[in-house]
Design a protein around this nucleic acid. Sequence first.
DNA 1: GTATTGATCTTCT
DNA 2: GAAGATCAATACA
Length: 157
Amino acid sequence: MIVETEAYSPDDPASHAYGGPTRRNATMFGPPGRLYVYRSYGVHWCANVVCADEGTAAAVLLRALEPTDGLAEMRSRRGVEDARLLASGPGRLTQALAISAEHDGLDLGREPFALVPPRRPVAVLASPRVGITRATEQPWRYSLAGSTFVSRPRPRA
DNA sequence: GTATTGATCTTCT
DNA sequence: GAAGATCAATACA
């Protein structure tokens, strides 16, 4: 279950797509509903959902998951026991799901992926984005209210 | 508990 | 040559 995301818009100085297409961000300029995967700090993979229509680069970075299934697999990939550490952070999330460059550009509506909306409305908190230096005033980080699986600032209770 | 730093890919200057 | 949508290990309080 996705519990934390961040939005990146086409005219967003903090977005990879700001300043036009490059080899890395090409997927962001493609059709929506696909997965955009990039290398972060030379070490980690980060996964985004492409949102805008083709030619308009907007995406949502997946920052944290609450593991609900496949816990054993995630633990073995991550090498940690604590469920909160399995996918609370962009790099951890991709490692837990075994997402890497080979998944870049894949359709999230097809196997092995599936995106399922929540059954009922959920409470979401908006806050400043994490780990960026530009356009930090945009409160485009969205987290599930009360979730203990969110990365960084821990929600109280 | 907080602070600092290494890893080393991709892009931009 | 420097910085970045990061994490984990280490050092310190």
